[in-house]
Design a protein around this nucleic acid. Sequence first.
RNA 1: GGCGGCAUAGCUCAGUGGUUAGAGCGAGGGAUUCAUAACCCCUAGGUCGAAGGUUCGAUUCCUUCUGCCGCCA
Length: 633
Amino acid sequence: MALRHKRLYLTTAIDYVNSLPHIGTAYEKIGADVIARFARLQGSKVRFQMGNDEPSVNVRKAAEAQGLDPLAYCDGMAGAFTNVWQRLNISYDGFIRTTNAAHRRAVTACFRSIAKGKTPRRAPNIYKKPYAGWYCDACEAFYQEKEMGEGRSCPTHRLPTQWVEEENYFFALSHYQEWLASHLRRHPEFILPEVRRNEITKLIASGLEDVSISRMQRGWGIPGRFASWWKQAEVVHIIGKDITRFHCVIWPAMLKAAGLSLPRTIFSHGFVYQRGEKMSKTLGNVVDPLQLVERFGADPVRYFLLRENSFGRDADFTWERFIERYNSDLANGIGNLVNRTVGMIHRYCQGTVRPARAAPKGLPTFAGLRKGRARILKTMSSAFAIDRRHDDLAFHEALSAIWALMTDADQYINDTAPWERQKRGESEAVAFVLYQVVEAIRILAVGLSPFCPETAERIWAQMGLDAAAPIAAMQWRHLVKFAMLKKPVMVRDPRPLFPRIEQESKISPQAPSHKARGEERGTMESELIDIADFAKLDLRIATVTAAEQIEGTDKLLKLQVDLGTEQRQLVAGIAKHYPPEELIGRQIVVVANLKPAKLRGVESQGMLLAASQGEQLSIVSPQREVPNGARVK
RNA sequence: GGCGGCAUAGCUCAGUGGUUAGAGCGAGGGAUUCAUAACCCCUAGGUCGAAGGUUCGAUUCCUUCUGCCGCCA
């Protein structure tokens, strides 16, 4: 089954608006968006629904803190949220706010039909019962005596709780226990991945208690918790693993009670950690998706999060890995492939790609093209198949299938070396090689389009493929066919899709304007070292006593150096910059406590320091002569 | 405390009851120049968390332990 349906109703959790979306919130929407886009690519009709959950005590407090009316505050947050989603290219069709009149009406109607109905045990779904207990405003929850800390403080906020007595409406969740259990047995794909399903299965088996659904006086607007639940009949619902319980137990039971159909699947995704730690405002390690998008664009962010892990698992965000992925996969990978291909088409084919049938004789065919396409089709189909055989949404596998074809294309180019054929006048062969590579890039772009829609479009435009058909018109089935081009197309000027992130910016990857916000303090600190780290280096002055080129290499020199107390042999990759004789007698700086290593079979007992940038290189020497063995610090 | 999951190369992860346990990234070397110092080729000898057990044989099965994580109490 799974996404083969003609219609897909896809929803995400609705977000609380007491703080701006962070990268974990974005993870959910990005994952859902990829599903939506893939389903559209397969020809399904998709309704992709997101929203904000507005009325709550915390929101009221946040609004008050800013001197705003709650609704005005929520209006502002709704704008802020949708702005982030738009910047991330989340293709939602509807954005609901729980304060919307339409939503209120729907909830009220839903509530009424629940109230009218009976439980499977023929009792009223909703009943009134006085309730009294210790209540925490911040959590909006009651606590048992034993759960609370000293002075009856709330266990999470450590704030004093209050004794509250109120008339409460209860939903008879306990009566739905058997029904839920059997639904789960019959429809294992109702909760995915399996870990989460098992948790819920056990929770249900251990017994369910009725839940209070009213908190009339405490919030503002619509009554309490009930407002969190949607009334819509959905097919696939994407949520975070923290709210599995509510969305997989209480919500389905209420839908059932209201006589509504259930979602086919509730998929519970993982979290995004920052350097293995939970992101939190107190730790100051919250990664702002907007900042990332402003600096790198939406696609690198989307790509990174989806490439690092399958969707059900936790992802970890670190600047190092982000930059690593960006440079190696995006800049050096897809970016460079498109760039070199477009460049060659300009140079060798007057900027024109011509469809061709058969390869000129003597030219190796691009065997990887067929194979790669088949693999992409297969892997992507199963990666998006949300069913019990495919427990997880394996976005990362889909991406690695796409990348495998990309690598093959690079290899094919190197093997056939169009630049050499061009010199030999084999223009027909050159044109055919490039035509096949364009075909590969076309497949890559379509496969990539759910993940990185902007990039797919840019590739499309740069290759001139939009002259044949807009990428939006591309369907999954177009990947099955080879030779889509009917007539020649002109490529545009090559423009790098992803400029490399250079080494320098590694130290502070975030834009300077954001530094002051102090949001990534965790990252900043971890990239600084303290004096003890520096002290680990044993840097010493030495004089070069002998130097010779290592045979069979053009970069390596073998040096003998006098460290004062001992002689050492070093291997240094500076032969292109220094003839051996120029080094003899010169003083250098040596890392004396470096683990020895063998380079081309020659042992190197340390390394010399040199400064380099681009083609320039200079060894580091003391400005005045000092005794050999002198410590550098 | 109960239940469950995980622990594999520097990093992120695949994987299998059996001759030499894999990939990507990083690192080193080579080759090359169409390209964003890129692409391509070669190089990783890792007690497969620890200890026992089952087996002709275990990283892969079982038990215990340790560490981390999740759910629950």
